[in-house]
Design a protein around this nucleic acid. Structure first.
Lengths: 201, 201
DNA sequence: CTGGTAAGTCACTCAATAGTGACTTACATT
DNA sequence: AATGTAAGTCACTATTGAGTGACTTACCAG
């Protein structure tokens, strides 16, 4: 192990990320992270200050919340319903495929510590960006409460991704299986289209 | 403290319930529960067998997942959309007002232990009951994937209730406030009506 | 009144947690 | 070559977690 602060901090963050993705945020304790990184735990305190600050650094420097391609320019073909559906499906799929983001999302729903707040902030910023982009691209009818609709439907997307990571309890959709997942996606797409004006899907 | 097994076990379950409602499932450790119940921890092992079995007993004997009034008889006035909306809103409200159920729901989304499975089972059973009741009461058009729709929209309801228990990160809806909560409820109700055929709400 | 059973108490073990103080060693600058 | 600084190592504390063995005491049946 060379004496290289930059590579050491990177390895610490990598280790924390891996542990969280595999076993959840609670599993990323100082001792566990230090051991996984192959580094003395004193260095975690020196470089980050403690567990809280380690997690904060992780939330800020790594993509703990998935980044989405927000449609930017105006596009004559695009409909509000189509854009919303595309964004929500992209969100659901990103969470489904990114264990770190999934664990972070679950943590954000369950806990109230600083890490949860950090994730909430990233999430809220993204929602704001999406809402702004949609309003820039489309004329949103004034009777549509776009913020509330986005909050509710994004919740559905997030929830589906989280639920899909857990074994189902029988009789329900098994969102780990691809066919059931597609049924859920379809339901979500149809929902958006029914709500926001529907080209046939 | 009288020598009374029944009342002791009840106090243990009460204590576990209170701790979970206040600080989450992880806070309901053997030591913490025993202390909160005013009981020696040996009794937890004697009467339940260990932490895992304690939680299982709790899941089975207390209402860890909120019970809903599922509409039973056929009612000429009832519409599918109306029934679904009513059920989803009842679910969201029940979770919003029941901290134990909220913590359980969050746990079920985040963890994979036996307690999580127990909650999933209760949840899945409820969903099955609801779907069955709806099919008994209404003719569901064959092109509607009712199971998928219920899964996605119940997810939205659950997610909203969980999100509403956490402080918001700015710029978003604050679902702890009643007016924002009502906006979300409205969005959900309109969504259901748009999807399933809409009497004006 | 006696004895067995179950309720409750006490005092531990073992492992893992966060966090700290004191030390050694590499390395770049002077 | 001397030296200060920062990287890395070692050994420790204090707390908390789950779980167990051995004890005392209340109470009910005979």
């Amino acid at each position: 192990m060379p004496r290289d602060r930059a590579s050491t901090t990177a390895r610490i963050l990598d280790a924390a990320q891996t542990l969280i993705a595999r076993d959840g945020v609670a599993a990323a304790g100082i001792n566990a992270v230090a051991e996984a990184a192959g580094v003395d735990k004193v260095l975690l305190y020196r470089y980050f200050g403690g567990r809280t600050q380690l997690l904060r650094a992780l939330a800020r420097e790594r993509a703990v919340w998935p980044a989405l391609e927000v449609p930017a320019a105006a596009d004559g073909d695009a409909t509000l319903a189509g854009d919303v559906a595309a964004l929500l499906l992209a969100l659901a799929r990103a969470l489904r495929e990114n264990p770190l983001a999934r664990r972070a999302a679950a943590w954000q729903l369950a806990e109230r510590d600083e890490f949860a707040r950090e994730i909430s902030a990233a999430r809220a910023a993204q929602m704001r960006a999406i809402a702004a982009a949609l309003r820039a691209r489309h004329r949103v009818p004034p009777f549509l409460d776009l913020d509330a609709i986005l909050a509710v439907l994004a919740g559905a997307a997030v929830h589906a991704a989280l639920q899909g990571a857990a074994p189902p309890a029988g009789g329900e959709l098994d969102l780990r299986r691809n066919d059931d997942w597609l049924r859920a996606e379809r339901a979500l797409r149809r929902t958006v289209e029914a709500l926001l004006g529907a080209p046939e899907g």
